[in-house]
Design a binder for these strands. Structure first.
Lengths: 340, 340
DNA sequence: CTGTTAGCGCTTTCAG
DNA sequence: CTGAAAGCGCTAACAG
């Protein structure tokens, strides 16, 4: 059964053809399941394939194939091990799988150079498309590739320099809804704790916070955390200040977690209302359960892949922008009322 | 700057050679940075590359290159969006990056057929190596590929059917240490809640639990949760039983989370001691903070990649098995003493 | 130091 | 329905 061929050479179609006593083209036809081919020949070929342990070299085929597709795509995210982005990956995989397309995945670590190196690396492996969570400000160098047929979709944040398909969450709307929810529960001093507005998503969420406060005529109370860990101190500082807030809006995953540590550390979790942006594991296990604005990262990935494949399928319209809703998930912490 | 070539054809080395007025081989030498090449010619080539927006086709080179390496590898894990496995992915990426190797990543979803399809897909794209969290019982079909130079490493669980390099956590030792820790704090009735022992890791952890109880002459109290969600009910059942345990060992990530929900839901988190296998986010935010046995998934990935590349670098010794330590992280929940 | 040539493994006309 | 032959984009001898 498992005869290892004498030499260390992988068997090729030529070897299969020789063993089966047919021509190269017949092997190709059988391997690619493209009739017409006589059943008896097909059987002979299949037997030879089995015997030799022949493995199709899809990349060699790509070189010659009419459409030139490699059946692969590149995914560049901030970090493959960040649960948010790995969920995006998962969504992409779900639709790529239906087309037998495999995915190169890599982390940019929010570093433009690294992003660029990764993109070049996967492009050199001739991926059919690219899905990118953009970090770099300039992506014009991809324009030529797109003109030459590369599929390109940006996800989570829009590209700044070029016009391309993109899939985003409703960041601003979600943040606004979170703050309006706190307002509706009687809060007048609502603090914002989040990363500085360098990234698109951070800017949008801050804008949402402001959009909610403005019509109420309330003044803002903003604390920026450069590193997520900074949020811990920021929240403690807010709790200790003269004019302490009665409610907290934390604009991101890791910052919400730090805020929880601070709140619980001080035993104030039942007094200070809190809504976080991004759902977190254990949000419903702790007391009070954490009210959040939920994103749908898997949906983000799915939508990005759909857009990408529609291009590869020949869609040539103008660039599209899909925005996914960010519903409020009520669990308890966001429904605490201010004292008095 | 960004002249898109008139036709939709990607420029090739031939185009570059023609524009630069040199031969194909000279272009190849410049592109691959393999001297000797006259500086003036190099400049001409580089200019032409720039003008045309030439992009190297690394896969075409693979076909002809002496070593035949594609500079890519395949990673098959249970789920790309599971934080544990995506951390493994991250570890692999860290070492692959130093060699400019990119990674195909896909999810087997604990399904042997899917695993097989994925492996075939990446093999057809001629990856240099494969890192697999095995689900299928049989991997003998990979033997021939390994004989033909494929690097192969199993991670998190050993392969059952073939002899290959593998990287594991010390599952049994970690579980044993967890239970011994609870014994040392005076507990005599310690329950085990975990998945049924179908998977290697589950079996090992259960064995560790038993290995700790046996010398103490204590009887076991085991509850299996087929789905993580089942652990919630299982823990409630234990709490309500006549001979309720005073301590809990939960043998996995998601099960620990469900147990926490149950414990906190009943307000028993300060009475029942609890140690979980696998670290979890927010473990230190809740009260009491959760004592765990920590794995090092990033280290698992790094080690797997090191083993893989050592093979590609020509190492030909017998198969190696690396086992990573699983330290106890003391935080509070595991140090509660039994009543009385 | 540079160019010519053969050919990697495959798909695709094009004849038979 | 099957085979022969050309050639995808590239690298590696080998001459010059």
């Amino acid at each position: 059964m498992n005869l290892v061929p004498p030499n260390g050479r992988r068997p090729t179609m030529k070897d299969v053809a020789a063993m089966a006593g047919v021509s190269l083209s017949t092997v190709s036809r059988v391997v690619n399941g493209s009739p017409p081919v006589a059943p008896e020949l097909a059987v002979k070929v299949e037997r030879a394939v089995e015997m030799l342990g022949y493995r199709h070299n899809h990349t060699a085929g790509t070189l010659r194939r009419a459409n030139g597709l490699s059946g692969s795509l590149g995914l560049i995210i901030e970090d493959v091990s960040n649960p948010f982005f790995s969920a995006v990956h998962r969504g992409i995989e779900e639709v790529a799988r239906t087309r037998s397309v495999v995915t190169f995945a890599g982390s940019s670590d929010e570093d433009a150079e690294r992003e660029h190196a990764l993109i070049e690396a996967v492009l050199a492996r001739r991926v059919d498309g690219l899905i990118v969570v953009p970090t770099a400000a300039d992506h014009t160098y991809l324009l030529r590739d797109v003109a030459n047929g590369l599929g390109l979709v940006f996800v989570d944040r829009p590209a700044q320099s070029i016009d391309a398909d993109s899939v985003l969450s409703d960041n601003r709307g979600g943040a606004q809804r979170a703050v309006e929810h706190l307002l509706a529960h009687g809060h007048r001093r609502i603090a914002f704790v989040g990363p500085p507005p360098t990234l698109y998503t951070a800017r949008e969420r801050l804008a949402g916070y402001r959009a909610a406060l403005a019509p109420a005529g309330l003044s803002e109370l903003v604390r920026h955390a450069v590193e997520p860990a900074d949020a811990y101190g920021a929240v403690l500082g807010l709790l200790d200040s003269d004019h302490a807030p009665t409610a907290l809006f934390t604009s991101q995953n890791l910052i919400t977690i730090e805020a929880l540590r601070a709140l619980h550390g001080r035993g104030r979790q039942h007094e200070i209302a809190h809504v976080g942006f991004d759902d977190i594991v254990l949000a419903s296990a702790i007391d009070p359960a954490v009210t959040v604005i939920a994103q749908d990262p898997v949906g983000l990935g799915r939508a990005a892949a759909e857009l990408l494949f529609s291009r590869l399928d020949g869609f040539v319209g103008p660039s599209r922008r899909v925005e996914l809703p960010t519903p409020l998930v009520v669990r308890g912490s966001g429904e605490l009322r201010p004292p008095g």
